[in-house]
Design a protein around this nucleic acid. Structure first.
Ligand SMILES: Cc1cc2nc3c(=O)[nH]c(=O)nc-3n(C[C@H](O)[C@H](O)[C@H](O)COP(=O)(O)OP(=O)(O)OC[C@H]3O[C@@H](n4cnc5c(N)ncnc54)[C@H](O)[C@@H]3O)c2cc1C
Length: 458
DNA sequence: TGATACTTTGC
DNA sequence: CAAAGTATC
């Protein structure tokens, strides 16, 4: 019996899914397929892959509840898709378009051999829909966002009917790899909805003020869910407005802007795929970075001696998530204070983050390093102490992630080296022993970075 | 979506 | 002399 394949990639949801909707509209029964591309899973299962696997199981349960299922095959996508088309007589394959260089090349090849049809949905506006009047892509965020906001947001509310191939006709699946779910991030649609509702109810008038505060839970915590499409960016945007006319409350206005940043970075990776390998700004490709493996190691393990940097890096390592402000601070510290190639940081984040995403992560790193589109100017060097005092004023964030400093009270925790020794001793702290002294002097490191960037810049 | 060194303001 | 403003990186 001919079927249509819904090829699930990073759109792990049934509702408001354009690829699934297109498959259903074909009029044939829909066979949901997920291909575990082993090449993406190497060398070992990272957190985002564990999250993905749990989300697949959750989706499978939803499909089972509808009397269907999902085929899971492991291997090369073209090969496996060919197999499935042969086995099932599928006449078309529907999938949500993905903009990474790897995904585009993969899909390009598959399109030559199989009836693959791609739909929009990863971003709110397609990268080719947000262009300058002359048709070229934007490289400055504010200009991009102005154009983005001028476009009408069309939200197609869809929910699949009984269109799925019955369970007894679903072909065999390969075994799933063993994995442990990611603590704190249940990979379910229900959890995504819960988080969105909680955020909508709590943050319409506070997000813009709380989002930078590392000591508060002022953000949505939706990033891995959006990353793998358990909920889409469009679904999220759609929930911000209770009716179409009113302007957004201040908090949601800023939140909306964050989702535009997301579209912006997807657009950058689409139009400038080379940023995956190298700096967007050509003049910084010849920047001479330091080769300092022990500094990289100290940064990864959160023992740089700057409490706010170390707190962020410990949060990352322990949970797979880091507050946005902490991502900016730790990225600035690695690239400016330690003068280490931003790609080192990019790879470590990708390895650790449960929401790890090439477009957003590469964009964030190139922004922090000053090498990207519309990046922070190279001379914008974060002072980790000032950032800490400003965005973790009472030191609660640091105490949460650095148990060895937990007995130090208040915002002074951001500069433990200024606290008298007897007081540190009372808190069980001995600098250089229980907690490191700063591995670099910030003001000297800042000068060093300015010089290096300056000489590369001309 | 900075920081710093230096100058000016205002009490 | 602290706060506020400004030029520069
Ligand atoms: C160096 C660096 C690396 C980053 N790497 C990633 C990454 O791998 N994956 C990722 O999703 N985000 C990344 N970000 C962006 C941002 O830090 C996270 O999206 C955010 O912290 C996730 O938490 P949240 O869902 O609570 O965010 P919220 O503040 O609730 O934001 C809502 C959503 O908007 C999107 N978003 C917010 N900020 C950004 C941004 N600056 N760029 C792109 N999308 C954004 C995310 O989808 C996020 O879930 C990175 C930022 C930096 C500075």
């Amino acid at each position: 019996m001919p079927v249509s394949i819904w090829w699930i990639r990073r759109d792990l949801r049934l509702d408001n899914n354009a690829a699934l909707e297109a498959a259903q509209k074909s009029g044939l029964l829909v066979l949901p397929v997920f291909i575990l591309d082993d090449h993406l899973m190497k060398p070992s299962l990272s957190r985002r892959h564990r999250f993905l696997l749990e989300a697949i199981i959750n989706l499978k349960e939803h499909l089972a509840a509808r009397g269907s299922g999902v085929v899971i095959r492991r291997g090369d996508p073209l090969e496996k898709m060919r197999e499935l088309v042969c086995e099932t007589g599928a006449t078309s394959i529907f999938a949500e378009e993905d903009f990474t260089p790897y995904a585009r090349q993969r899909d390009e090849v598959i399109k030559k051999h199989l009836p693959l049809k791609l739909t929009d949905g990863l971003t709110i506006h397609h990268p080719t829909a947000v262009l300058k009047p002359d048709g070229s892509p934007y490289t400055v965020f504010t200009a991009f966002s102005r154009k983005w906001r001028s476009l009408p947001v069309v939200f197609l509310s869809t929910r699949p009917r009984d269109c799925f191939l019955p369970a007894n006709q679903i072909p065999y699946s390969d075994s799933m790899p063993e994995f442990a779910p990611v603590a704190d991030f249940p990979g379910t649609r229900k959890e995504a909805e819960t988080r969105l509702t909680r955020f909508i109810d709590a943050s319409s008038h506070t997000y813009h003020e709380y989002r930078d505060r590392m000591d508060l839970d002022g953000t949505s915590g939706l990033s891995p869910y959006i990353r793998f499409g358990l909920i889409s960016a469009s679904e999220v945007i759609n929930r911000l407005r209770s009716d179409k006319i009113t302007t957004l409350p201040a908090g949601f206005e800023v939140f909306n802007n964050e989702l535009i940043w997301r579209d912006f970075y997807h657009s950058i990776i689409f139009h400038f795929p080379f940023v995956r390998e190298t700096s967007f700004r050509e003049e910084f490709r010849k920047l001479v970075w330091r080769n300092a493996p022990s500094d990289i190691q100290a940064w990864k393990e959160g023992r740089t001696g700057y409490p706010v940097v170390d707190a962020g890096m410990r949060q990352l390592k322990q949970t797979g998530w880091m507050h946005n402000r902490a991502r900016m601070i730790t990225a600035s510290f690695l690239t400016k204070d330690l003068l280490i190639n931003w790609q080192e940081g990019e790879h470590w984040f990708m390895d650790q983050l449960v929401d790890g995403d090439l477009a957003a992560n590469n964009g964030g790193w190139q922004w922090a390093a000053g090498t990207g589109t519309d990046a922070a100017p190279y001379f914008r060097v974060f002072n980790p102490v000032i950032q800490g005092k400003k965005f973790d004023p009472y030191g609660d964030y640091v105490r949460r992630w650095l148990p060895e400093l937990r007995e130090i009270r208040g915002g002074r925790i951001h500069e433990p080296w200024l606290i008298p020794e007897y007081e540190l001793a009372r808190a069980g702290v001995q600098l250089g022993v229980t907690y490191p002294l700063p591995i670099v002097n910030h003001s000297q490191a800042r000068e060093r970075a300015l010089h290096a960037y300056q000489s590369a810049g001309r």
